[in-house]
């Protein structure tokens, strides 16, 4: 397979995730769509890492290190974000973004 095939899958995945962020109203599902977008970026990074071969014939592992860091940050982000959602639910009893329209409680 060529690099473009993987980049196409990555871009389509990003578009699907972005559409989900725009269309869905449930805060938790919006978070899942954000995870999809992050993973699309990961796929592009890994395919570029495989495509760019170092002089010793191995893939360029710097891209994979970046993916490693992205996965770590995404895990921390999900933990903090879901804690915020739970705190918001305690205050408002809803996770619909249409009903959360005031900054001050």
């Amino acid at each position: 397979m060529s690099l473009n095939d993987y980049l196409l899958v990555s871009g389509l995945l990003f578009a699907i995730g972005f559409t989900g962020v725009l269309v869905r109203r449930n805060l938790i599902v919006i978070y899942m769509c954000l995870e999809l977008m992050l993973n699309a970026a990961n796929l592009a990074l890994v395919s570029f890492s495989r495509f760019r071969v170092a002089p010793d014939g191995m893939p360029d592992y710097h891209g994979q290190i970046l993916v490693f860091f992205i996965i770590t940050v995404a895990a921390a982000e999900v933990a903090v974000g879901l804690a915020i959602i739970v705190a918001l639910y305690r205050a408002r009893q809803t996770t619909q973004v249409t009903e959360i329209n005031r900054m001050q409680y």
Binding site: N42, V46, I71
Partner: peptide, 27 residues
């Protein structure tokens, strides 16, 4: 699976452990 096809089995494993194991369970 795509990561494995791209010769990155370590990242595939980390993805399964962290995302499928931790993040989806948290969701």
């Amino acid at each position: 699976g795509l990561f494995v096809l791209l010769d990155a089995p370590l990242l595939a494993f980390v993805l399964l452990l962290v995302y499928a194991g931790a993040v989806v369970a948290l969701f």
